[in-house]
Design a protein around this nucleic acid. Structure first.
Length: 586
RNA sequence: GGCCCCGUCGUCUAGCCUGGUCUAGGACACCACCCUUUCACGGUGGGGACAUGGGUUCGAAUCCCAUCGGGGUCACCA
């Protein structure tokens, strides 16, 4: 085997501060696909150097989200069957030394080693200003409409470990609080980007940015450069928001004597209103819902909301005035006002009944396109992970940002659901229900047959797995718990001198005369048809009356199947309850 | 504001590199009709875009420039 040839390596390097963002999912997908297409490896690395915001639970969550999508990494952490965090590393035969740690927080000694190298070569220096001092200076600059650039101390000589630097180094070694800054080169930097082409940055654009924080953790730019080098990353593919970081990385690589990997910056994914898709959107959305409600009803206050949601009143007040974007409060308010929060993270989509294959397919089309036609001449846009792994290429990544069109995703999801054979659909639907709609799953019960019948009735019109629950929940709730839609009842039962109720009474007696053995979709259908003929109305009005009685609404799966699933007893109880509710036809 | 990126239907995009086959194609959404026991599905049809202005050229969505517009980024976050 060609163990000596340096293999192609891409990486996805999330920071574990929450669930996997849908944009992150696309980045990971493209990195994965590019590696697969080129016989390379896809690496996962966890960027947890922000000690305050990072958590191991988030890292686990992200790894699981990726796994659920079918994006499996060849290198870096994974979740083992027993739930522990394992790790794939370079094997001895690969020719690449093992990386050891894929969590940045555990690599601090490595960063420090390179940092010292930089200091000793006069390319990094300790700086002792406090955060507050810098902030104050920055504010002055911003107020004067100037771009703030940290002024390099005059005693620091670029590229020289002089006495002044040595003195600073000693102070730092002695424990004085400091940050480490990179002595940026005063030269033009050209980023060769595989998507955008050459992007030039003039000399002097870059200031002496911080590369190690006072807490001893490296800044992103520094850790990334060292990790990409030492982990063997050859191709960096990330979102365009990182483009302006790249010159820093290139400068750092040069100062450290590293190679520069190949870069490809992908277009951003934005909301329909052009704003950046972010986790904060949930807070914005919940805040708007709350404010709308308050505008309508002055009685709603932070105090009343605190009472009804159980959240802290102060935090709610802050939330409402946009002083915080607490996800917890956003969720509590959304639940209280019964508004759905926008799906932003992979987990949100999963929870709401999206299929991973629909998500990966849809998201892969955001900024990329296979450029192929289907046999009937249309643009090819439905494909699976295997297809991506064999057709993906950077050359077909676009430059323009893409709006995230939920309607199209929903259409893709509906198609993906309908493409599933019934047996597969029922098992996936059931598994999903057990996780996300446990009460519904419990109400359906253990019978595989019952699940299958239900699944068949539900699948053709379900755009999400949750839709399947919504459209069939009426079937599994107690017969006495029907919640009649007043408008639908008026139209289909009471209108035209209670015509619907009369039809309902007639069909009720016909149903009553059917034996349990005869209670099949076919027979029921023909009974309804006959009743419609005899009434001279066709089967429509009869059907609608039955729908109101058994579902409470004017919409349901086809009645034959629906009634069959329900069973004769329940059907009659519901019809009788309905007749009682609206008064029997006189 | 400085720097950087981008600009084809409402949206995702094909076409652009290698000008003519583009009266600009597809998908989602929308509208109409058909199918239909409801809702979906499906079928047929329809409206809908080359940001603007200058060049270059016999000819420009395609090449060049300007303008306008949108976005990103300017942290001891990543």
């Amino acid at each position: 085997m060609s163990s000596s040839a340096s293999p192609l390596v891409t990486r996805f390097a999330p920071s574990p501060t929450g669930h996997l963002h849908i944009g992150g999912a696309r980045s990971a997908l493209f990195c994965w696909a590019f590696a697969k297409k080129n016989g390379g490896r896809f690496m996962l690395r966890i960027e947890d150097t922000d000690a305050a915001r990072s958590s191991l639970e988030s890292a686990r969550g992200i790894i699981e989200d990726l796994h659920w999508l079918g994006i499996v990494n060849d290198l870096g952490p994974f979740i083992a069957a027993d739930g522990s965090v394992g790790q794939h590393d370079w094997e001895a035969s690969s020719g690449h030394p093992p990386v050891g740690e894929y969590f940045q927080a555990k690599r601090v000694p490595i960063y420090n080693k390179y940092l010292e190298q930089l200091v000793k070569s006069g390319r990094a220096y300790p700086a002792f200003e406090s955060n507050e001092e810098i902030d104050a200076q920055r504010k002055v600059a911003v107020a004067a409409k100037q771009t703030y650039r940290y002024p390099r101390p005059s005693e620091i000589e670029f590229g020289k470990f002089n006495a002044a630097l040595e003195a600073r180094w000693k102070r730092a070694q002695a424990g004085e609080r400091h940050v480490m800054r990179f002595a940026a080169p005063n030269e033009e930097i050209v980023v060769h980007d595989e998507v955008l082409g050459d992007v030039k940055y003039a000399p002097g654009e870059m200031d002496d940015f911080v590369i190690r924080k006072a807490d001893g953790f490296p800044i992103y730019h520094f850790a990334v450069v060292i990790d990409d080098e030492t982990m063997g990353v050859t191709h960096v593919m990330r979102a365009q928001e990182h483009l302006n970081n790249t010159p820093r990385h290139v400068a750092l690589q040069k100062a450290l004597g590293f190679r520069t990997p190949s870069y490809a910056h992908m277009p951003l994914i934005v909301n329909m209103d052009n704003s950046k898709m972010s986790k904060r959107d949930k807070a914005k959305f919940a805040r708007k819902a709350a404010k709308d409600a308050i505008a309508k009803d002055k009685a709603i206050t932070a105090t009343s909301l605190s009472a009804s949601t159980g959240q802290d009143e102060k935090l709610i007040a802050q939330f409402l005035s946009a002083d915080n974007d607490s996800l917890e409060i956003a969720q509590a308010l959304a639940k209280h006002f019964k508004v759905p929060l926008p799906e932003i993270e992979v987990w949100d989509f999963r929870q709401n009944g999206y299929l991973p294959e629909a998500i990966t397919n849809f998201v892969s089309l955001l900024g990329w396109n296979p450029g192929l036609k289907t046999p009937d001449g249309k643009d090819l846009e439905k494909f699976d992970m295997q297809f991506l792994a064999s057709h993906f290429g950077i050359d077909r990544i676009g430059k323009t940002s893409s709006k995230f069109d939920r309607a199209k995703l929903l259409a893709f999801n509906a198609d993906a659901i309908n493409a599933l054979p019934d047996e597969i659909f029922v098992s996936r639907w059931r598994t999903w229900c057990e996780e996300f709609e446990p009460e519904f799953a419990k109400a359906v019960g253990p019978s595989a047959d019952r699940w299958l019948v239900l699944a068949r009735a539900v699948k053709p019109r379900a755009k999400t797995l949750r839709d399947g629950v919504k459209s069939s929940a009426f079937l599994v709730r107690p017969d006495s718990a029907t919640d009649f839609d007043p408008a639908a009842a008026e139209k289909n039962l009471l209108a035209s001198d209670r015509a619907g109720l009369k039809l309902l009474r007639t069909i009720r007696d016909r149903f009553d005369s059917v034996t349990d053995a005869e209670w099949t979709p076919e027979l029921l259908h023909s009974l309804i048809e006959q009743a419609g003929q005899q009434a001279g109305t066709g089967m429509g009005p009869v059907s609608q009356a039955i729908r109101i009685a058994i579902a409470g609404a004017a919409v349901s799966p086809p009645l034959g199947e629906t009634l069959a699933v329900l069973g004769k007893r329940s059907a009659l109880v519901r019809i009788d309850a309905c007749l009682a509710e609206f008064g029997s036809a006189s």
